[in-house]
């Protein structure tokens, strides 16, 4: 780990200002991702701006239209919040499938959304990686067969590893918005607009601007979702990143789907939403047959490589099972 300047921020303005004043400055909240990368020598912050000391960023509230999660709320607090469990349980269902209680106690909402790649090439300083070094070509592009953990959607030259967050996928399915604060302004972006597929020009995958900070997430209640489920299929039963995950939120009234949210983790280079499948489900009966059709639509644009080709069918089946689980899990079920 290199030496760094350490600054504690008291306000959001201070934090943004301090970060802008020095090159290679990083916000640090929970630190569970950043400290790891620093120890591995793959990130070299020249300044750590500690935002843990900013007050007012931990609140969780139900405004009537939305449930609001302050960025510094820990993953555990968010997952166990009555407001989340009652009004946006998919956020809780997805959070608790990620990491472990120890890590969830440390990690914040903003940190979870901004977590970096978990790809072996990203973690190997000797490997080419467009997320570590601008302009590098992802090794799975040159090795055309790819690797088993390759993404299926959003492929590009720089980075083809799936986005690792479970929480982001749950929030995405609920059409959540991330709230961004700059010196003078606040703006909100839905998660599918907040993330962007990796590009050659820089190492980012979000539209977070220089001079901005995430201050919270807004989960809208207007879609009337009343059923949800998160299914994470992985190579062991806990404490592992997904092979593939499915997040489904449904507004079912007398057996008909009025609105659907469908997303997946570990299939896209960013958390991936299946808008076409969602539109298909709208107005349809909540039956297995319709779920199967929706899943088929969802995987239509997949870009499999030889070593992850099985994921297309697996994703389809997982989406079916997730939708079935969601149907059986109305809001208010203790799960």
């Amino acid at each position: 780990m290199n030496f760094f300047q350490y600054t504690e921020a008291k306000t959001t303005r201070d934090a943004i200002k301090a970060k802008q004043e020095k090159e290679a400055s990083y916000f640090i909240a929970g630190g569970s991702n950043l400290v790891d990368m620093m120890k591995e020598g793959i990130q070299h912050p020249q300044q750590l701006v500690d935002i843990n000391t900013i007050s007012g960023l931990r609140e969780i509230k139900n405004t009537g239209d939305t449930v609001y999660l302050g960025t510094l709320a820990s993953n555990t607090v968010a997952a166990e919040s009555e407001k989340i469990i009652n009004f946006a349980p998919l956020v809780s269902q997805s959070i608790v499938k990620g990491a472990t209680q120890q890590i969830r106690n440390m990690a914040t909402i903003g940190g979870n959304l901004m977590q970096e790649s978990r790809c072996p090439f990203f973690y190997d300083v000797s490997a080419s990686c467009g997320r570590r070094t601008v302009g590098d070509v992802c090794p799975t592009v040159t090795a055309k067969d790819g690797i088993r953990t390759n993404a299926l959607f959003g492929l590009n030259e720089s980075c083809n590893t799936p986005h690792p967050s479970d929480m982001a996928v749950g929030m995405l399915a609920l059409r959540s918005k991330v709230v961004l604060q700059s010196k003078n302004d606040t703006r909100k972006l839905t998660l599918d607009k907040f993330y962007h597929i990796p590009v050659k020009e820089n190492t980012k995958i979000t539209h977070l601007q220089d001079g901005e900070m995430i201050v919270g997430v807004e989960i809208p209640l207007e879609h009337g979702f009343n059923h949800s489920a998160y299914l994470k299929v992985r190579d062991r039963k806990s404490y592992a990143f997904a092979l593939i995950s499915g997040a489904a939120a449904l507004n079912i009234q007398t057996g008909t789907i009025l609105n659907a949210g469908l997303a997946s983790g570990w299939v896209g280079t960013i958390p991936w939403r299946f808008e076409e499948a969602e539109n298909f489900l709208q107005g349809k009966a909540a039956t297995e047959s319709n779920f199967r059709q929706a899943a088929k639509i969802a995987v239509g644009n997949a870009q499999p490589k030889k070593n992850n080709a099985f994921k297309v069918k697996l994703l389809e089946k997982i989406l079916i099972r997730t939708l079935l689980m969601a149907k059986e899990t109305p809001y208010g079920t203790n799960n």
Binding site: R118, P120, Y123, A143, I147, R148, D235, R236, K237, S238, Y239, A240, F241
Partner: peptide, 28 residues
């Protein structure tokens, strides 16, 4: 669940850490 995964282009490990090499945990 456990297996060493190698990049067959150069025989290097792809999962040389406990996050990628899946030893059993309680839930298994």
């Amino acid at each position: 669940q456990e297996a060493a995964e190698r990049d067959l282009s150069n025989f290097r490990y792809l999962n040389s850490d406990l996050g990628g090499y899946h030893m059993p945990v309680q839930a298994d």
